Amino acid sequence: GIPATNLSRVAGLEKQLAIELKVKQGAENMIQTYSNGSTKDRKLLLTAQQMLQDSKTKIDIIRMQLRRALQ
């Protein structure tokens, strides 16, 4: 079985993952909103794209940590 310490770690990672998935969803929504907007929305679009990139990276890292914890 999986050690108890790993189980609480997994629960924490799953919570983090859920949050990051919401951030990713929000960033994707912002990108959709701003991509057909005016030029003043360009900065917001770039910010949203950066957020999305960061979020995807975090999600990958969390998933990797989850896999390790579940081994």
Rank of each mutant, 00 (worst) to 15 (best):
E20M: 13
E14W: 15
P3D: 10
V23I: 12
T33A: 11
A48N: 01
T39V: 06
V23F: 10
Q50V: 05
R63A: 04
D60H: 12
Q71E: 09
L44N: 07
A4Q: 14
Q50Y: 04
L52Y: 05
G26H: 15
V10G: 02
Y34Q: 02
Y34R: 01
G26D: 15
A11M: 06
I19H: 09
L44A: 09
G12Q: 15
T47A: 13
I59L: 05
M30I: 05
Q65T: 03
S38A: 14
L70A: 06
L70N: 03
N29L: 13
E14T: 13
G26C: 15
E20K: 01
I2W: 13
I31Q: 01
N6L: 13
T57E: 09
G12A: 15
S8G: 10
V23P: 00
L44P: 02
M51P: 00
A18I: 07
N29R: 12
A4F: 02
S8F: 07
R9Q: 15
G37A: 07
K58D: 00
L45D: 01
M64E: 14
K24N: 02
L7G: 13
D54M: 10
M64A: 13
L44K: 11
K43P: 06
M51Q: 06
K22P: 00
I31F: 02
G12W: 15
K43G: 09
Q16H: 03
R68D: 14
L7M: 07
I62C: 01
L46E: 14
S35C: 14
D60L: 14
K40R: 06
I19G: 05
L17T: 00
Q65F: 04
E20S: 03
K15V: 04
K40S: 12
E20N: 03
E20H: 07
D41F: 04
M64R: 13
T39I: 10
G1Q: 09
Q65V: 03
K15P: 01
V23Y: 06
A27H: 09
E14V: 15
N6H: 14
T39C: 13
G1H: 11
R68G: 06
D54K: 12
A48I: 04
A69R: 02
R67A: 11
L13D: 00
D60T: 14
K15N: 04
N29H: 12
P3C: 15
Q32A: 13
R63H: 06
Q49M: 12
Q49T: 06
I61F: 10
D54W: 06
E14L: 15
K56V: 11
L52G: 00
L45V: 04
K56Q: 10
N36F: 10
Q71S: 11
T39D: 11
T5R: 02
S55A: 12
G12S: 13
S35G: 05
A27I: 14
Q32N: 08
L17R: 01
S55H: 01
I31S: 01
T39Y: 08
T47R: 11
L13N: 00
Q65E: 14
S35E: 08
R9F: 14
I19M: 11
L45Q: 02
L7T: 12
M51S: 05
R9G: 11
Q16A: 14
R68C: 15
N29S: 07
A11E: 15
A11L: 09
I61N: 10
M30R: 04
L21D: 01
Q16C: 13
L66R: 01
I2H: 13
K56C: 13
L46G: 03
I59M: 02
L46K: 06
K58Q: 05
L52T: 01
I59P: 00
I31M: 04
M64V: 08
K56E: 12
L45A: 03
G1T: 11
E14S: 13
M64W: 11
R67S: 06
L70H: 04
N6G: 12
V10C: 13
L45I: 04
A4T: 12
